[in-house]
Design a protein around this nucleic acid. Sequence first.
DNA 1: AGGTCAACCTGAGCGC
DNA 2: TGCGCTCAGGTTGACC
Length: 289
Amino acid sequence: MPELPEVETVRLGLSPVLEGRLLTDVQTRRGDLRIPFPKDFVARTKGRKVKKLWRRAKYLLADLDSGETLVIHLGMSGRMSVYAHGKQRRIGSYVYDKAPDGVGKHDHVVFETDAPARIIFNDHRRFGLMTLVDTEGLEQDKLFKDIGVEPLSEQFNATYLAKRLSGKKTPIKSALLDQRLIAGLGNIYVCEALHRSGISPKRLAGSIKRERIAPLVAAIKKVLSAAIAAGGSTLRDHAQATGDPGNFQHQFLAYGREGLACKTAKCPGAVKRIVQSGRSTFYCPKCQT
DNA sequence: AGGTCAACCTGAGCGC
DNA sequence: TGCGCTCAGGTTGACC
């Protein structure tokens, strides 16, 4: 499910019930997700205050007052759903539903906070993970040390991208999915950014002319920003913390549009689906060269 | 070193 | 209704 815009959308919806709040209770409902929970996970999170909730790549990060950071990855199907205690209510700028009775089949972790709210981590495919790392050494941690620049930061610019693509023999589609180059892009937004900048996903990364790199950078930033503003893209699993779906799927120009007319002005082409390194790529062979 | 591919897991949708 | 097949927003580790 979640690429950068979806994770950012979830972060925004979690912020009112987590930042500055106390984790009054934590329950894990199985021993592992993609990896096992760390030793004493509950004891190390329960009773702690969340100082800051932020995001790096596709990871949600909650800095605790213990000096550890709770690291959450939603994998392909993970959700963080927020429910208000007792009744539906507004907390901060979001309205959260009342918590349902009982637990769902794939509810793996439940947090209670003094917002007061319940946060349920649900992930039926279990590609997600939850762990704890020292806040101080987070950037050096195995999970983060090789992660590239944030695409919405100033460090991500044409100079950086040109340098990182230089000499690469892999198709640009695969290069942009590589988290070591750019943090947070996934299959949808790579397809959309390439379509919007008129670059073929099959073109070898190192063969892209310098003058086409700035428009590619601009397209990546623009599509990510627009997707965050729309609450992310909901294909099947993604939901905002409030439970509402995202809306950016209505603005797709390429992703999932196989056989449909290309939406580029005056382009007579149709969107084609191919497979690159095991993932579907959607593009227009007429206007992406 | 750099690149590709199967594996991890469950559910939905489709054709028969 | 049910079976079997394909596909899904990600990451990793084994292999060329």
